[in-house]
């Protein structure tokens, strides 16, 4: 079952990656990133059956980081939306110049 869980984690990660690449909505890109994080968490948890409790500890830390990231990221989205009146990332191209 462990190996299948790892495969599931890989599949979730790939889907998350697809989401990050193909979507324009900043919120959904964010959700895709959370999906990727969850895929990783799943792999950690599965491997903790094989290597010990540390895997679960990492999941704990990843969740904390994800929470912080969500807070800051959403704040940024709000801030940008206030300026552009949209969350379409194609509009956020100031980095180009």
């Amino acid at each position: 079952m462990l190996a299948y869980a790892l495969l599931l984690s890989a599949a979730l990660f790939v889907i998350g990656t697809l989401g990050v690449i193909v979507r324009r909505n900043a919120i959904i890109i964010f959700l895709s990133i959370e999906l990727q994080l969850n895929a990783v968490n799943l792999a950690f948890v599965a491997l903790s059956r094989y290597t010990g409790i540390e895997g679960q500890l990492f999941v704990f830390f990843v969740m904390t980081v994800a929470a912080a990231e969500a807070a800051v990221g959403l704040a940024i989205i709000i801030s940008i939306f206030r300026h552009y009146k949209t969350v379409n990332v194609d509009r956020f191209n100031l980095l180009k110049w």
Binding site: M1, A5, L8, L12, I27, F30, L31, E34, N38, N41, L42, V45, A46, S48, R49, Q56, V59, F60, M63, A66, A67, A70, A71, L74
Partner: peptide, 29 residues
């Protein structure tokens, strides 16, 4: 995924997953 955590005997993480992730963070979104 939280359910799968339970299957792997990670009950605490499963609870946090539901409470913090599916609950708090998703509501924030």
């Amino acid at each position: 995924v939280a359910g799968i955590y339970v299957l792997f005997e990670a009950h605490f993480l499963a609870a946090i997953q539901v409470l913090v992730y599916a609950g708090a963070i998703m509501v924030l979104f």
